[in-house]
């Protein structure tokens, strides 16, 4: 009987998912009571952050200000 790689891998995937998941290894934080921030209103001041890069293109900066 021919064995196809795709079939074997798919079956392995199904077995993986069907198996009882082990206790999570993450250190996930317990849920906090959800606090709702105040809604926005026209004219509000908003802060701009770039924690994942920087923008040095003047067009982009003008666009964001607008």
């Amino acid at each position: 009987m021919a064995i196809e790689r795709r079939g074997v891998l798919a079956a392995m995937g199904a077995l993986l998912l069907a198996a009882k998941a082990p206790p999570p290894m993450t250190t996930a934080a317990a849920p906090l009571a959800l606090v709702k921030p105040p809604r926005l209103r026209p004219g509000d001041t908003v802060g701009l952050i770039e924690p994942a890069g920087f923008t040095d293109d003047s067009f982009d900066q003008r666009d964001v200000r607008r």
Partner: peptide
Amino acid sequence: MFADKDVRAVFAVRGGWGCA
């Protein structure tokens, strides 16, 4: 920025990498 009472919301300008 979160302590600044004048700032009502905080926008990320863009994504990228390294925020973590």
